[in-house]
Simulated scan of single mutants.
Amino acid sequence: MKRRAVLSAAAASAAALALPSWSQGPLPAVAVYKSPTCGCCGDWVDHLKAAGFAVKVIEVDDTSAARKRLGMPAEFGSCHTGLVGGYVVEGHVPAKEIKKLLNTRPSAIGLAVPGMPVGSPGMEVGTQQDAYDVLLIDTQGRKSVFAHYPKAGIS
């Protein structure tokens, strides 16, 4: 019986390793709801494209309607809202954190970077970067820190 358990565990491990990872295969497309006049939103879209994401831009006059429809609480709002792999991505979230989210697949609404912190993707100002957190928003609307970016550069 022990031999069968060991063989089953080995087979399960091999199968798990064979599963595709977003870091190894093609990335899913990102739908981005943004204002047609927002430059920083366009810069964030360029950041996603440079990281390998296909992006479909949907221009809207008010992103709050998309945010609400997708289930992201208003308190985490920013200037654009994305949808990727079943997750909502609110604000200037770095592409590497989106990839991490897609690889780890937590039970969550998605990620948010509320406001528009200087130095976040699309909000670059030279080497300056304000400290900011990428928040994981769980299915109950509660936040936890998914990643922290420290202050950097000259203020």
Rank of each mutant, 00 (worst) to 15 (best):
K2A: 07
K2N: 09
A5R: 13
A5Y: 14
S8H: 09
S8D: 10
S8G: 05
A9R: 13
A9F: 14
A11I: 12
A12T: 10
A12R: 06
S13G: 05
A15R: 06
A15K: 02
A15Y: 06
A16F: 04
A16S: 09
L17R: 03
A18C: 14
L19V: 01
L19I: 00
P20T: 08
W22P: 01
G25C: 03
L27Q: 07
P28L: 06
P28D: 09
P28Y: 03
A31D: 15
V32L: 14
Y33F: 14
K34H: 00
P36E: 14
C38T: 03
C38V: 07
C38I: 01
G39D: 10
G42R: 04
D43Y: 13
V45Y: 12
H47N: 03
L48K: 03
K49W: 03
K49R: 11
K49F: 11
G52T: 06
F53D: 09
F53Y: 06
V55Q: 13
V57A: 13
E59D: 15
E59R: 10
E59V: 11
V60R: 15
V60Y: 07
V60T: 07
D61T: 08
T63V: 15
T63D: 12
T63A: 09
T63H: 15
S64I: 02
A65I: 07
A66F: 10
K68F: 04
K68N: 10
L70E: 09
G71L: 10
G77T: 11
S78W: 02
S78E: 13
S78F: 02
C79T: 12
C79V: 06
T81H: 02
G82P: 01
G82D: 15
G82K: 03
L83S: 00
G86C: 05
Y87I: 02
Y87G: 00
V88M: 03
E90P: 12
G91T: 08
H92I: 12
H92K: 01
V93E: 08
A95Q: 10
K96E: 12
K99A: 05
L102Y: 02
P106T: 01
P106F: 00
S107V: 08
S107R: 01
I109K: 00
G110M: 02
G110D: 08
A112N: 04
P114Q: 14
G115E: 11
P117F: 01
P117L: 04
V118G: 05
V118Y: 02
G119K: 08
G119W: 06
S120G: 14
P121D: 08
G122C: 10
M123I: 15
E124Y: 15
G126P: 04
Q129N: 11
D130H: 07
A131M: 07
A131K: 00
Y132V: 09
Y132S: 09
Y132H: 14
D133H: 08
V134P: 07
V134Y: 10
L135K: 04
I137Q: 12
I137V: 14
I137M: 02
D138C: 01
K143P: 01
V145M: 14
F146C: 05
F146S: 01
F146Y: 05
P150R: 12
P150S: 14
K151A: 13
A152V: 09
A152C: 01
S155L: 10
S155C: 10
S155F: 03
S155E: 11
